[in-house]
Simulated assay, not measured.
Amino acid sequence: MKKRYAVRAVAPAVLTALVLTGCGSPDGGAEAGTPSSRETKDTPAGKPVTKGGTLGAAGSACPMPVTFDFAASWTPEAVEVDPGSDFAALGEQGPVRMVCEIDAKPAGNIGYLRVWAGEPSDSEPRAVLEAFLAADPTAGKAAYTASEAGSLTAAEVTYTVSSELQDEPKTERAFAVATPDGPVVVHLGGLDSAEHQRMLPAYELAKKTLKLG
């Protein structure tokens, strides 16, 4: 079943109304784990996060070039930019387009873990992240590091986002990997830096369990 809705934020301080088509079941589809599939993970910060299901494979809420586990109570939904929308271009950031968002509100947080995917290319993960940030005029103070996502080589960036609606810049982060089907960027935002910090275990779970689809 498909529905049309407006994504609350894609590029911070830029998007006011983006018409998208979302498809997939709120509970993650066929692979959005049942209680028997849930397990506890530990993040580098030592905070436990419970697995709610797995995304990425055909039949899951968000078919993607990669698969990863998402946190319990977070609700995933596939995103398809409506080409007929006046705001369709805002569903793209640099070389990638948003394909999935995982809402943290049912888990008690305000924010999203979003997945962006691009066309096949020879670009290294760091170059993809640099282009991703370059397309966001509100991004600043970026710190890039070499990383791993599951068994894949990855690049990661922590940066700040400024807005006239906020008293101070907030922290966001993302990691990127290269796949045969194109680059994938997994991004974590949040209402503010404190909320971002509280959602980090879900981000780390996705990064730790990521595999090629």
Rank of each mutant, 00 (worst) to 15 (best):
A71E: 15
A71C: 12
W74V: 12
T75D: 04
A78I: 02
A78P: 02
V79F: 00
G84N: 13
D86R: 05
G91M: 03
P95A: 14
M98Q: 13
C100S: 10
D103I: 01
D103N: 13
A104R: 04
A104K: 07
G108T: 08
N109R: 11
I110T: 10
I110F: 08
G111T: 08
L113S: 09
L113R: 09
R114E: 08
W116M: 03
W116L: 11
G118K: 09
P120D: 11
S123Q: 12
S123G: 09
E124S: 15
E124I: 04
P125M: 02
R126S: 03
V128Q: 02
V128K: 03
L129G: 02
A135E: 14
P137F: 03
T138Y: 00
Y144N: 01
A146M: 12
A146K: 11
S147T: 13
A149W: 03
G150L: 06
L152R: 02
A154F: 05
V157F: 09
T158C: 04
Y159E: 02
Y159F: 12
E164R: 09
Q166C: 06
K170G: 14
K170F: 14
R173L: 15
A174T: 05
A176Y: 06
A178S: 12
T179I: 03
T179D: 07
P180K: 06
P180R: 07
P180Q: 10
D181L: 10
P183Y: 07
V184Q: 07
V184L: 07
V184K: 06
V185N: 08
L188G: 04
L188E: 00
G190C: 06
G190I: 10
D192G: 08
D192N: 15
M199Q: 11
L200E: 14
